[in-house]
């Protein structure tokens, strides 16, 4: 039973890995400056970000301005996780009610 189960997970892992490696066949070569990822959206960040946001650090400019909504979501994720942990673990530490 247990070996069978491990075999199944192994098969799933190998299928996943094979699929991913199959996908790399058409990928642009590593470090290619003209790959779609480096030439479609991102050049405008490099040429424009400093002018528009007055920040020399382009990563910060994109993080906190162009895609600041993602960053809002990111802080919400941290908030969610902290509240989740607080929610799950609080009773164990302290049974009495703090709120009145």
């Amino acid at each position: 039973m247990r070996n069978w189960f491990k075999l199944i997970s192994m098969a799933a892992v190998i299928i996943t890995g094979a699929l991913l490696i199959y996908g790399t066949h058409d990928m642009p070569a590593w470090g290619d400056p003209d790959s779609p990822a480096n030439s479609h959206v991102s050049p405008r960040y490099i040429t424009e970000a400093t002018k528009k946001t007055a920040t020399p650090n382009i990563v910060s400019a994109v993080l906190a301005d162009y895609r600041s909504y993602d960053t809002l979501g990111e802080s919400a994720v941290i908030f969610t996780a902290s509240i989740s942990c607080f929610f799950l673990l609080r009773r164990i530490r302290n049974k009495e009610d703090h709120n009145d």
Binding site: S42, V62, E74, V77, I78
Partner: peptide, 23 residues
Amino acid sequence: YLNPLPHVLMLTAIVVSIATTGV
């Protein structure tokens, strides 16, 4: 200059992975 967009995305993904680990 390197492409800044993947770095930005992965800053978010790192935070997500830490949050999941915490929960």
